[in-house]
């Protein structure tokens, strides 16, 4: 940064110096008119310079026609001082000073201004290049991230589709199992109910038979019990037993 300021100061000084040099070498309108008056010489008038001009003026006032012509000619010369300088070809001194100033300025610029400017430009170029590289890198990363994201998204969609399919299959399997189990349970319940009915029926018949037999046996036992209270009956039973045992032998 300090080099940059130094270069700027050198440039300003060179411009100032060159401007002064150009003004000093230039010719003003006044000096041009003064030189024309100082060197004036007219035909038929002795002397030169301001004296000759005064004499010419006196003759013109005396109605000397020739003097009038000379004055008109001299006024043309003076008007020549009012003409503008050549816009294409400057004065030689101006060219010299300008060229010198330009060379000095160019040297100073090469010496002091260009290196820092070059450095600045290189730094700026490097920054821009870095920024471009960084942008490229970020863009590449973004592309990669996008690709990864799209791949993951595709995987997620595939996975989601697979999960949905599996869930659907499992739901179908579970539904089929439940239906089969329910049908089996219903069939089993029907069979069990039929078996229960049959068992109840058999049990009822058996209970009825048992009840009837108990009643019959109870009645028989009551009758027999009453008859066994008779000692003669007991004796008869024992005698019958003895006779039967004896008959078995016989």
């Amino acid at each position: 940064m300090r080099r940059l300021w130094t270069a700027a100061a050198v440039v300003v000084a060179a411009v100032a110096l060159s401007a002064s040099a150009v003004n000093a070498a230039g010719e003003t309108i006044g000096s041009c008119i003064f030189e024309e008056l100082e060197g004036a010489q007219f035909e038929g008038i002795e002397g030169n310079g301001f004296t000759a001009v005064k004499e010419l003026k006196t003759r013109y006032k005396a109605d000397d026609d020739h003097a009038g012509e000379l004055i008109e000619e001299f006024e043309s010369d003076l008007e020549g001082c009012l003409e503008a300088p050549n816009p294409i070809f400057p004065e030689r001194t101006e060219i010299i000073w300008g060229g010198l100033a330009f060379v000095i300025l160019l040297a100073l610029m090469y010496w002091k201004l260009f290196p820092p400017v070059k450095n600045l430009m290189e730094q700026r170029t490097q920054r821009i290049q870095d920024a471009i590289d960084d942008a490229d890198r970020q863009r590449a990363e973004a592309v990669e991230v996008k690709a990864n994201y799209e791949a993951e998204l595709a995987d997620a969609k595939t996975e989601a589709a697979r999960i949905v399919d599996e869930a659907r299959e499992q739901a179908a399997t579970v539904r089929a199992d439940l239906q089969a189990r329910a049908e089996a349970d219903i069939a089993e319940m029907r069979e069990r109910a039929a078996a229960d009915v049959e068992a109840s029926k058999r049990q009822a018949i058996a209970d009825l038979q048992s009840e009837v037999s108990d009643i019959a046996l109870g009645a028989a036992e009551a009758v027999i019990g009453r008859s066994l209270e008779d000692p003669e009956m007991q004796r008869q039973l024992i005698d019958d037993y003895i006779a039967r045992v004896g008959a078995d032998q016989g």
């Binding site: 024992i238 037993y241 003895i242 006779a243 032998q249």
Partner: peptide
């Protein structure tokens, strides 16, 4: 009875 059992 003893006689019947003996015989049997």
């Amino acid at each position: 009875l003893a006689a019947a059992l003996s015989a049997a």
